[in-house]
Amino acid sequence: MTDVAFTDPDGSTVLVVHNENDAPRDFAVAVGGQSFEYTLPGGALATFRWPKSGAPKADRREVPLTGATATAQPAAADARAAIDADGSTRWSTGQAQAPGQYLQIDLGRRTAFDRIALDSGDNLGDYARGWRIESSEDGAAWHPLATGTGTGQLTTVDLPHSTRARYLRITNTAAAPGWWSLADVRLYR
Rank of each mutant, 00 (worst) to 15 (best):
D106G: 01
R25W: 10
T39A: 15
V17K: 02
R115Y: 09
D106V: 02
V29N: 05
A96T: 10
A165F: 01
L45G: 05
I83T: 00
Q34C: 07
P56V: 06
P144L: 08
R60S: 08
T13R: 15
D119A: 13
A55K: 10
T156A: 13
G108Y: 09
Q95T: 15
H143P: 03
D10L: 04
A77D: 12
P160M: 03
H143M: 04
A30L: 10
F36V: 09
L124A: 15
P64F: 04
R60E: 03
W131P: 00
T47N: 04
G100P: 09
L103N: 02
V17M: 06
A70C: 09
D86P: 08
A175T: 14
A146Y: 06
V17H: 02
S88Q: 13
R110H: 06
A55I: 06
S135A: 14
G148R: 04
D86W: 08
R110D: 11
D119C: 10
L15W: 07
G125Q: 09
A176L: 05
I105W: 00
N21Q: 14
L154I: 10
D8I: 00
D59I: 11
S162E: 13
S181K: 04
A79R: 01
P160A: 06
P64S: 14
W91R: 05
G139E: 06
S120Q: 07
G67N: 11
P160W: 02
K52G: 10
L40T: 07
T149G: 07
A183H: 07
A117R: 08
R189F: 03
L159N: 01
P24G: 12
S136Q: 03
R169T: 00
P51T: 14
G54H: 11
A175V: 07
V4L: 13
Y38K: 11
D122L: 05
E62Q: 14
L159M: 06
A46N: 12
T155D: 01
A46L: 11
M1R: 06
